[in-house]
Design a protein around this nucleic acid. Structure first.
Lengths: 219, 219
DNA sequence: CATTTTTTTTAGATTTACCTAAATTTAAAT
DNA sequence: ATTTAAATTTAGGTAAATCTAAAAAAAATG
């Protein structure tokens, strides 16, 4: 079965949203893809006939095993290209996502096989996320809070345990969201506070309590 | 100005056809792109409003200076990727065209800049064709006939001087056309005949007369 | 639990890049 | 110089992926 760039992007986004919630809603997917709910409904019917999603009207949807395998193939391509961009071409780790987003749709399987060899079979991408193997198997990485991250490490925010308005207000103030890249500069032993540097922001200090609530992929 | 993948492919094909004939016809472009003449007419109107072609109804068309610069940018990306595929990933030189065809449309200029550095500023692609620089300047390479090519060299057929039906019949028999890749195995001093190996064909011997009429890019 | 509110779907349009078939223009041949 | 043939364009239509506005279903609320 062949998939268009658009179809691949939908499959990939459903995959990512499923990491948070087992079943995905029309609105959340529309928001993720910066499109309109009506467009999502249209595409989902197509993906249903192509047998990659389980979809029940008004009830949300999720990838079936076939869809999951396709998603992992796309994730594999994306992460291999990110590794290439950072470790071979010298890009900054926070600049590669959009480019990898285009490269991942280049369709040759031989290309990805040879790229993998050339990169010497990397296990994780520059953000610390594991790279699925050819069969779609992927190492599980444990969730670490910012309090657990060693100084000088680059990380990406993957989730926030406390979702209160107060917490969200603070995160917004620090320009932190899911997917935000940041670097841990230093831990202060006195009170457990952490100095971090969010990409394109000045360094700032967050309390231990906040740090423990921000979960990240480590680099 | 932004161009779609389709628009880029039209611009690139017009560029290539202009290497043979100063002005390009609807039919030849349709043939090159494996599409229909009516589709070409449609796209040409669009490219005309986008100010990249000079086009007069029923009279053919050609790229204007702006269009030429865009074409050379695409050619640059294509050839850099071909170099990468062969010299870094280890592809055979005759297997890379279709993949480069996809990679060339990835739009980041920063990507191409860094790729060029990584590849150490190559001057020619794996087929011996020169790589245009950032400003669209490109070295001119001299036309060589098959009789002038050293043994063991890979080349690509760029033109055929004798276009008689007899010649074309013979070329067809040997599976040789414009763009065909082949390798020169050996020259025979006795009569000047040449043993060549066309990609995916068994080796064969052509007379000196034929060899002198087949022009190639040398590798 | 009836009624707002929100979410999702349907209906109908739009844009891009194609297509076929028919009409028009140019070129070739008698 | 007509006529015939070939090339090109126009007209009208299709499929993919989007959109807006309206209708329908599900969830939230008093």
């Amino acid at each position: 079965m062949n998939f268009s760039v658009s179809e691949e992007n939908y499959i990939k986004s459903i995959y990512h949203l499923q990491q948070q919630t087992a079943t995905v809603t029309t609105n959340s997917l529309a928001n993720e893809l910066r499109t309109k709910p009506a467009s999502v409904t249209d595409m989902l019917k197509k993906l249903q006939t192509k047998q990659v999603v389980e979809y029940e009207k008004y009830r949300g949807f999720k990838l079936n095993p076939a869809g999951n395998k396709i998603a992992l193939g796309i994730v594999r391509r994306h992460r291999l290209w990110e590794f290439f961009l950072v470790n071979k071409l010298g890009f900054e780790w926070d600049k590669v996502h959009d480019i990898a987003e285009e490269l991942e749709h280049v369709s040759s399987t031989e290309l990805i096989k040879k790229l993998d060899v050339f990169l010497n079979f990397p296990q994780t991408d520059p953000h610390g996320d594991p790279i699925p193997d050819t069969n779609g198997k992927m190492a599980v990485i444990k969730q670490l809070s910012l309090a657990d991250i060693a100084a000088k490490k680059n990380v990406v925010v993957s989730s926030v345990s406390n979702q209160s308005p107060e917490m969200l207000e603070m995160l917004k103030h620090y320009h932190i969201g899911i997917g935000t890249g940041l670097k841990v500069n230093k831990h202060f032993a006195f009170d457990g506070s952490v100095e971090i540097k969010v990409v394109q922001q000045s360094p700032c200090i967050i309390s231990e309590q906040v740090a423990k609530n921000i979960f990240v992929h480590h680099d």
